[in-house]
Design a protein around this nucleic acid. Structure first.
Lengths: 340, 340
DNA sequence: GATTATCATGTAAGCGGTAACATTCATAAC
DNA sequence: GTTATGAATGTTACCGCTTACATGATAATC
């Protein structure tokens, strides 16, 4: 508790040894005599000395810092991933910095400049389920980035992307959701959210179609609306469906892109005089903390994002590798009911 | 786009100049001839060279990296602060790393070790409205931290803390909320959330009491329940009030610690057969993105967290100083109505 | 007792930059 | 023509560590 910024030289001279010896005790090498070790440790404690991670990083190998890029923290999905990654990183003495999505913009500045110049030990990139993420410019930026440091992708990642990834197979998940709703007797099932495109075989709409086909249900174009992951989008999406159809054709269940979209659907439903889940079942995705407190409590899918974030860190650090699928669990609460 | 990790020496030899000259063009110094500058720039572009922030940091002055400590990212309040801080930091070429709350635990490890050894240029600490944050151990850790780097506090910070801070005067805010509810005709107003303690003059309960007094309303002990900032806490809190009182004594309005707590209150209310806002008005705090999509849409207080986060960065960088108050705005939506 | 293996410790060369100071050379001043 | 002046550029000593290698002192080997 004595003084601020001391260097390894100060400690060495305090303890009457060379800096190499101090460095040895700092790194816990064994070939230091007990007496010396103790002398050094005392000097360290006395000055409250902390070796500079910066200087260590310069010497080579590792900077003990990681990065993460994600669309937005206000989306609980990403906040959970970040949290998991942060915990894992910090448990290993790594710092985790958040970088903006724009880091991948080829136009602005040079791609990935901020990341590259920091010599990160790796970066986690959360890709949105949006064509914007899959366009070749972003992909090029990612390839570029990969030349500087290990990259792990999280999200709906097409198999032909040559990146280590934790992949959300939204198609398989959505198919399971459809069959769940079918098991409740629903036959008019809407899908709200997601973006059209043929770049990605794991898209929700693909699983949606498959689920319908398997249940021998017709695909009705009006029941599928595209949109982003916000409440606004959910509101607009379901409103569109309800406004354009006679009530007798209204869907009895809706699959929302995520929990936020589901909230928008709640709003749309009540504004059309529908009572949930009696008149309409809604299922979300993400299992955000607030999900159980909506009325009705939201039935959703738990994506284990925290675990995913932690896992991504392990992958960056080389403890795991390749491409793995993220697990998911359907969480039944009160927003889905048997079809009347 | 040629090669990875080049150094300033590579560029110098490519361009046929000394490293000092390269360093000069890197830092945009003026006393370099146009011809030389261009030669160097070409070499830089050709190898896609990025100077190492690590090496720069070693030389002294600044590491161009900041830290932030907050209770949890899953709380939209903190996610918004983080977002604002991140944007501001990255606009200036600073990285922002998230560190866990436990960084301030005196017990674990040495206080602030991770932060100190990274030689951050500053750290933002979001303190919770909890005695735990104000206990002397955490305060000691903060003082310790301050000896290593600039610290800016965000939150409900008692005036005798000698820190630059952006301060939430929750007392003043709550007083205003009370008078808003009073103006709607409410006379039985509950306060759900917050922690008892005498360490902090900006506590919500103080403003609550003042507001009551000013409106010449009695303070009813059963209407004030303590608790944390989660939906669980809101549910338990309001349930407690409703269960312990005959319906004729039920409050007609409730002030929730934050929007998440307000959601818990919604649940408690509906489970008691109450219709919002007809039978009960609820007001939250934080104005989270989902707030407009609850039913009824949540009346709440906007704390301008993004702006606060950005401002904290500016304070760390010495562009602003001292202790300022965070602004707030009451956002009227559908969850508060005139008392029947 | 001379040789060698072993352990504890010291010396010094980087790592990739910055910046103070030195040098060079052309132009202006005398 | 000589010298002062200053812009352009180069040299070099750090910054705070890690690490390969050197050194010295003991202990083990025969």
């Amino acid at each position: 508790m004595l003084n601020e910024k001391a260097t390894i030289y100060d400690i060495a001279s305090d303890a009457g040894v060379s800096i190499a010896t101090v460095s040895r005790v700092l790194r816990g090498e064994t070939n230091v005599s007990a007496a010396t070790r103790e002398k050094v440790q005392r000097a360290i404690d006395r000055r409250n000395y902390r070796p500079s991670v910066i200087a260590r990083g310069l010497t080579g190998k590792t900077t003990h810092s990681l990065g993460i890029i994600l669309p937005k923290l206000l989306n609980p999905h990403y906040a959970m991933i970040f949290t998991g990654a942060q915990e894992e990183a910090s448990a290993r003495g790594f710092a985790l910095s958040l970088f903006p999505r724009s880091s991948l913009d080829t136009d602005a500045y040079n791609p990935a400049t901020m990341l590259a110049e920091r010599r990160l030990d790796g970066v986690i990139v959360c890709v949105e389920y949006l064509p914007a993420d899959h366009d070749h410019k972003v992909l090029a930026a990612l390839e570029e980035l990969k030349r500087f440091m290990p990259v792990v992708l999280i999200g709906c990642v097409p198999p032909w992307y040559d990146f280590p990834a934790i992949c959300n197979n939204n198609a398989a998940m959505t198919k399971e959701i459809v069959s769940y709703l079918v098991s409740l007797g629903h036959e008019r099932i809407a899908l709200v959210g997601g973006i059209e495109g043929d770049t990605d075989p794991f898209r929700r709409d693909i699983g949606y179609m498959e689920g319908l086909r398997e249940a021998r249900l017709p695909f009705t174009d009006s029941y599928r609306v595209w949109g982003g992951g916000t409440p606004e989008s959910g509101l607009a999406g379901l409103n569109g469906i309800l406004n354009n159809l006679k009530p007798s054709f209204w869907p009895t269940a809706v699959i929302a892109l995520n929990d936020l979209v589901a909230m928008g659907c709640y709003s749309a439903a009540v504004s059309h005089g529908l009572t949930l889940p009696r008149d309409l079942s809604v299922i979300g995705c993400d299992n955000m903390v607030a999900a159980p407190y909506l009325s009705p409590p939201l039935t959703t899918v738990d994506l284990h994002q925290r675990e995913t974030g932690a896992r991504a860190v392990k992958m960056l650090l080389g403890e795991e590798s390749g491409r793995v699928d993220a697990p998911w669990d359907l969480i039944e609460r009160g927003s889905c009911a048997a079809c009347r």
